[in-house]
Simulated scan of single mutants.
Amino acid sequence: MNHVTVVICNYNYENYLATAIESALGQDYPATRVIVIDDGSTDGSRAIIETFGTRISSILKENGGQVSAYNHAIQVLETDYVIFLDSDDVLYPGAVSEVMRIFATGDWVKVQFRLDVMDGTGASTGAYVPHVDPPADCGKLLLGGWLYPSPPASGNAYSVSALRRIFPVPEAGINRYGADFYAIYGVALVGRVAAVRKSLGGYRVHNAGGATVSFANSEQLNKAPEAVNLRWAILRDIARARLQVELAPTFHDFALEKTRFCSSVYRATLQTRWRWMLRDSGHYLHTIVANPFWSLKKKLGTLVLSSLCLVPYSPLSDFVVRYIANPLARRRAVGR
């Protein structure tokens, strides 16, 4: 039986950490190990880690950011497979068994699975991510600059040998965070990716009211484009140096382009919305029209919704932006 490690990277999430650890320890796959890496927490996280005793392995390090935690974990792992579980997320009891069953069916470097979206209390919102599954050969599209649909960090299981062809990655500055970017997209340059079409865990969104354009828990809207562009440039360097693979100079990703879309037109004047659509929407529209992962129906629907941002009635425009940007806003609209 192949062994797998669930690595929980934590920084100041004392309110959620015990739940994440319990979910990892509660896996029905017997060859599951649990490592908790605390990245210099200043709250009560380390006291919580101590309560689990020898049931887990712990690494207590100085604060260096998520990339530093991933680099350290990948260096010390002794199993062939790993799941990086964010300390505010959870795995369902059969998650590891399911991904290991998939790994056994082929030469996969990554098995990804859906995550149910939870609110800050851990209650289900009825939404899940991602909504689109990638093709097994998503690495070919990645070479052309298309970032394939993937769940957040906690929804991915990896071959450790594949990760070690990408990591370690630089840790300084703005690149302290976003380690899952290199794991998710880097391993797809090494081999094939499989997708489980059901939820095997929960993804906690702390602002889960659905009333804003914000969905992810990490970068702010105005910082995300700069951060992701830097990560792509670093991944290009890694791919060239370690894999002898040349990535495209730029990339296409609807998730990033809708961030630019939202920051430009949300709560903006009618004149500003029209100006952006006429002058600056080219990349946004391209990631819709040329998207290799979307059906024609989804492309047309997104284009029609986006066009509603040009109506004079600003409450409708703002609702449409929230609907496009935040899956929780869609659930809320359907429930009315």
Rank of each mutant, 00 (worst) to 15 (best):
G64D: 07
Y182S: 05
D86C: 09
N2V: 13
Y177C: 10
L141S: 02
A153Q: 11
L308Q: 10
Y92G: 10
L141W: 06
L296M: 12
L235M: 07
L230H: 10
A127G: 05
V193C: 03
Y11L: 15
L235E: 05
S159V: 04
A104C: 08
D119H: 08
R114M: 14
G209W: 00
L60H: 01
N229L: 11
C9A: 15
P249Q: 01
T54V: 09
Y13P: 09
F254C: 00
R260I: 06
D237W: 07
G301M: 09
S159C: 14
S306E: 00
A183H: 04
W294Q: 03
V117P: 03
L147H: 02
D119R: 10
F254A: 07
E50L: 13
W276F: 13
C9K: 04
L310R: 03
D133C: 05
T125I: 11
D88Q: 07
G155F: 00
T302H: 05
D280K: 13
V99D: 01
V196G: 01
L243N: 03
V109T: 05
Q220N: 13
S150D: 02
R260D: 08
R197W: 02
L163Q: 00
N229R: 14
W146L: 10
P225L: 13
Y92P: 07
D133W: 01
P149L: 09
C309A: 12
D280F: 12
N12K: 12
A233T: 12
G191R: 00
S58Q: 05
T42G: 11
A248M: 05
D119L: 08
E226W: 13
S218L: 11
L60M: 14
D180H: 00
F251H: 00
E219H: 13
A104E: 12
L91R: 09
